[in-house]
Design a protein around this nucleic acid. Structure first.
Lengths: 151, 151
DNA sequence: CTATTTCACATAGCATGCTATGTTAATTGA
DNA sequence: TCAATTAACATAGCATGCTATGTGAAATAG
């Protein structure tokens, strides 16, 4: 049995990981530009997306929903509190935990911020057909699932 | 003509940008884990990918090839010099520029590092057929191209 | 019931990305 | 030519991600 050693040169243009990084940076830059007038940064927007859907969560809840490390969330929440987007009250049932609540300021941003994010997604996907965009989302979801399961 | 205002609630699970960020973080974490034994970090690996293909570039060349900001590259190159992966010699033709060259240490890492990156890509895409993986790469390339053209 | 362990959160330190700005060298225009 | 502009790089400051570690509260094991 003959074995062919293909010169599988690792190319940046063919690497899914390289492209994922590049695409994510471009998405983040576009979103940052669009939500900056609202006084928001991308990671803050992600937290708000969860909180707009339902207030009163702990840091731990947010860590689970957004799949970032606890320390990352702690720093993001500290910046959001500093910027007047959230408040944190001690939990009555667990003295270790703090309940995160939206401020009126943060509630007022929901419409504009979601519209900005939608505009960024639309611009990014404008070169794809609707079917292709759906397929890209489906493929990304499956790749995320694979990497979450096995480190 | 009837216009339907669909309640297009912005959902994290349907957002290409959200998924791109999540996928890129998982790719980076997996790559970081695999190349850490080689003493490399993801951004350093990206620079090495370019330099293994041809030495003697300036910071500006690397900025263009990897599409990061000049300041980002300056910091990454400083860390790579600190870690003994590159040297920087003043350009003989332009006293502002510095020529980046690989050290023997960096040259010796090429095979192992590329294998690690390939392994990460393979693991990430293991839930997709070959055709689906090709399509994902193609779609990401097109989305990157769209965002590069129009901010 | 107490000792151990686990849990929730904070903090330190680092890498990687960004914008804004400074410095010096090269280029251009009058 | 020489003043103004542009170009290459460095630096400061910040956001977002990470790991490692500390602190105090809750849960569990004996």
């Amino acid at each position: 049995m003959q074995v062919f050693f293909v010169t599988m040169t690792f190319e940046t243009g063919n690497s899914a990981g390289f492209l994922a990084n590049h695409m994510a940076r471009l998405f983040a830059a576009g979103l940052a530009r669009r939500i900056q007038p609202l006084g928001l940064a991308p990671a803050q927007f992600m937290v708000l997306l969860v909180l707009w859907d339902g207030d009163g969560l702990t840091q731990r809840d947010l860590v689970e929903r957004l799949d970032v490390e606890q320390a990352t969330m702690a720093n993001t929440l500290a910046r959001m509190e500093r910027d007047g987007l959230i408040t944190r009250q001690p939990s009555p049932t667990d003295k270790r935990a703090r309940i995160v609540r939206l401020t009126d300021k943060a509630r007022a941003l929901e419409g504009d911020a979601k519209a900005a994010a939608q505009a960024q997604n639309n611009a990014a996907l404008s070169g794809l057909s609707a079917a292709e965009a759906d397929q890209l989302v489906d493929l990304m979801r499956r790749v995320v699932g694979t990497m979450q399961r096995r480190a």
